[in-house]
Design a protein around this nucleic acid. Structure first.
Lengths: 175, 175, 175, 175
DNA sequence: TTTT
DNA sequence: TTTT
């Protein structure tokens, strides 16, 4: 029992600010970040370059929240995979409000080169497919894969196959 | 010039109601739908089955909006690919409010079998990567692909490779 | 430590044949299916409708393999999420060969309506991010989510925000 | 008419070598790269760190091929979105062989910081959803978006909603 | 080998 | 408001 339908978000962008990490009473970490993606285009009439930035609220739980809080910084470039979740809350006037967030279940830091001293830059993921927020610090896998000896081997770049016959490509297609 | 970062959403779910289609002054269609995804789990203490439904606002523009408005119905199952966009608006009290939507750029209808009379069930996509909302009815592709004669052939199922040696798999790994 | 980079495939298509399930010495299931996706277009010169079908080899392990083997059939429509894996093997002449497969880690059956007797149609996923093939029948989560009492509520469709002012859309843009 | 089903690949990884660009008789660029993703884990018995690298063949056409050929280098980190395509070819012995590639339709360079002088690092995409390989240098969109004056505004990070009541989270759930 |  |  898990999922009915698919609810998946993939974001690559930069943090607008340092992450903010809080802890639940039980000690589970919750980290929030704001990530920008943008698109640019030329205005058709003026020819001016235009830009529109979209800000994404991303929330991490448990072990992933700890990693995000520790390694991400304002300006960090990250890959995030997660699910959409719209929360209801009340404003001061008691009115219902809604906020849509991305609940992250995987993260890849993408600028280890530009980082200070971190020799890593890898990817992390939370336990799968449980309705977030989960509470206790996730016991992350620990799963030892244990390939058998005669397992299917990974495939080191095979010798390149002959290129398709490019001369036979249709020539005068204007697109 | 197009995108800085990645802003991608993939949804598979069912429409909660019939689509609503409007038209701009210039005749461009805009269709809104609400799509449900859900996750289910067993309550740890009570053992009771639990369910949480997430509702996604999806907006289509132009040609895709016309197709969505014509073929989708309450209960329809669809695959949607799009981008997140948060819009600002003012409520009656003049206060700023924000609504997050998925701007669809691809749609696949997934229940042609269960449908009434629709003899289709294929996929559609809008022109790529322009800041939505776009205005005029999209001139969809028109792109004629035109493979040359000697192009690389599609690959009909190759003879199955020998299965990996399964007996050598590690046996007693408890996960 | 899990992933460096992202290796993700998403497929929606139909099975060309019934699934084939095998078992390792340790009892772990391995199911193989072949899934078709296709694209259609009009030939630019002749105006003839064209179609190209792509066949995807998909392999499931453990619990997911059992479910796939039991519920999928020739013609079934499925959503698959997985990772690419290229395996090396030797043909009869002792030559190295390579086969690329999708190792599934999530599956959604998409045609419960059209199905025969299956009263389900939900989604399933394997344990995350361990190098496949894994061995023993996966102990799937068991994870009880356990929301606290005051947890953030799911958000039932908020009152619709006012539509963007469509009359102000640019009118005569020919795309 | 476009797609039946979904055939989508998302890769984030590093180039193993410099790209190789060729041109068709008609002048269309075709660029091939090999991109590594990897997963690491600890061997359950020995406790040794293990790593498995997957190599992905990626092919770009037209304008995207030119950009990839010009800006990517051995070691470059990229985000690629594309579709799987398995090509059939004959080896010297006349035997049928199959090679699976990712036909890229979007690319994001992810290491502008580490780059030499490139002040960019943005994303690019080819025209959508036409059966590749296409022939002539793609006329990329040219689509001017042209937002009207009163268009829905982007949403600058809204004031944070109150955090969910974390103290009420269930406390002693061991997962 | 699927699907429309 | 959907779906099972």
């Amino acid at each position: 029992m898990a999922q009915r339908g698919v609810n998946k978000v993939i974001i690559v962008g930069n943090l607008g600010q340092d992450p903010e990490t809080k802890y639940t009473a039980s000690g589970a970490a919750i980290t929030n970040v704001s990530i920008a993606t943008s698109e640019t285009w030329k205005d058709k009439q003026t020819g001016q370059a235009q830009e529109r930035t979209e800000w994404h609220r991303v929330v991490f739980f448990n072990r992933l929240a700890e990693i995000a809080g520790e390694y991400l910084r304002k300006g960090s470039k990250v890959y995030i995979e997660g699910a959409l979740r719209t929360r209801k809350w009340q404003d001061q006037g008691g009115q219902d409000r809604y906020t849509t967030e991305i609940v992250a279940n995987e993260m890849q830091m993408l600028d280890s080169r530009g980082g200070s001293d971190d020799s890593m830059g890898g990817g992390y993921q939370n336990a799968p497919s449980r309705p977030a927020p989960a509470q206790a610090p996730a016991q992350q896998g620990g799963g030892a894969p244990a390939y058998g000896g005669g397992r299917p081997q990974p495939a080191p770049a095979p010798a390149a196959p002959p290129a398709p016959d490019m001369d036979s490509f249709d020539d005068d297609i204007p697109f």
